[in-house]
C-alpha cells in the first residue's frame, strides 16, 4: 500500500514578496471610482491580475464605518486587480472580508496619520529590495516585463509590440522598439534611458508620446526621456 504520509507532497513556507497596497484615506465611493479609473488608465496592463492589499489603517472615522467594502472589492476586480487581503478595519469589516474570501493581515504598528491625497496606489516593498530588475534576454513582440518596484534595466532589444513598465526608471542598453512606461505609479521623477530610440510609445507617469511625435533627429539614437512639469522632454544622451 502506498504510504500517504511519509513522502512529502508539498512544502509550506513563509515567503516575502512585494504586494501592491491600496491605502484608503476616504470612503467617498464616487471619488474612489473616478480616481481609480484614472490610475488604471495610465497603465492598464500593470494592474491586470495584480494582487492587492486593501489597507484601512489610515481610514479615520466616520469614513471607516461608512466604507462599503463589498462595493470597493467589486470595483477593484472590475479593473482587473485581485484583492487578496485587508489590513485594519472594524470587526464587522473583517467578517465581511472573510465572506469575500479575503485574508486578514495584522495591523502595522505605524499609525501616525498622514496628510495625503484621497487615494493612492503604491507598491510597498514588504521586503526591502532596492535593486533594479535586470532583464538580459530580448523582450519579444507580445511580451510584457513589469518592474513592480524600483527600476527596470534591459540589456537586450525590446521589440515592436513588446511592453516594458517600471515603478521607477527604465534603462534599455540596446534598441527600444516597443512601448516603455516609467513611473507607472505616478513618479514624475522617473526617466527612460535608451541606447537606440525607436519606441512605439514612451510614457513617464502617464504623460506619453507616440513614435510619430519623437524628435526626428533622435530616431535610432541614444536618448533620455523625462518630465519637466507636465511636459515630456526627449533629449540626446
Amino acid at each position: 500500500m502506498p504510504n500517504l504520509t511519509s513522502i512529502p507532497a508539498f512544502e509550506l513556507k513563509g515567503s516575502l514578496t512585494t504586494l501592491m497596497v491600496l491605502h484608503l484615506f476616504k470612503s467617498d465611493q464616487e471619488a474612489i471610482t473616478v480616481q481609480l479609473a484614472d490610475k488604471v488608465a495610465q497603465a492598464p496592463q500593470f494592474f491586470q491580475h495584480a494582487p492587492l492589499l486593501i489597507d484601512l489603517q489610515d481610514l479615520g472615522e466616520p469614513h471607516l464605518s461608512a466604507l462599503d467594502l463589498t462595493h470597493l472589492v467589486e470595483l477593484l476586480r472590475k479593473h482587473g486587480l485581485v484583492p487578496v487581503a485587508i489590513r485594519g478595519g472594524t470587526d464587522p469589516q473583517k467578517q465581511l472580508a472573510l465572506n469575500l474570501t479575503l485574508g486578514i493581515l495584522p495591523q502595522n504598528s505605524r499609525s501616525e496619520s498622514r496628510e495625503k491625497p484621497q487615494i493612492e496606489v503604491e507598491s510597498e516593498p514588504v521586503i526591502l529590495n532596492t535593486s533594479a530588475k535586470i532583464i538580459s534576454h530580448p523582450v519579444r513582440s507580445g511580451q510584457q516585463v513589469v518592474a513592480l518596484q524600483g527600476d527596470l534595466v534591459v540589456l537586450s532589444p525590446v521589440s515592436h509590440g513588446a511592453e516594458i513598465l517600471a515603478h521607477g526608471h527604465i534603462h534599455v542598453y540596446s534598441a527600444l522598439r516597443g512601448r516603455a512606461l516609467a513611473g507607472v505609479n505616478g513618479d514624475t521623477q522617473a526617466r527612460i534611458f535608451c541606447q537606440q530610440l525607436e519606441a512605439e510609445l514612451v510614457s513617464i507617469a502617464g504623460q506619453y508620446q507616440i513614435n510619430e511625435g519623437l524628435p526626428h533627429h533622435l530616431q535610432g539614437k541614444a536618448a533620455q526621456i523625462f518630465l519637466v512639469g507636465e511636459e515630456l522632454k526627449i533629449e540626446a544622451l
Binding site: R140, G142, G161
Partner: peptide, 9 residues
C-alpha cells in the same frame, strides 16, 4: 515581426 512573436512563444 511575426517571427519575433513566435520566438517569444
Amino acid at each position: 515581426r511575426d517571427s519575433d512573436r513566435i520566438i517569444g512563444l
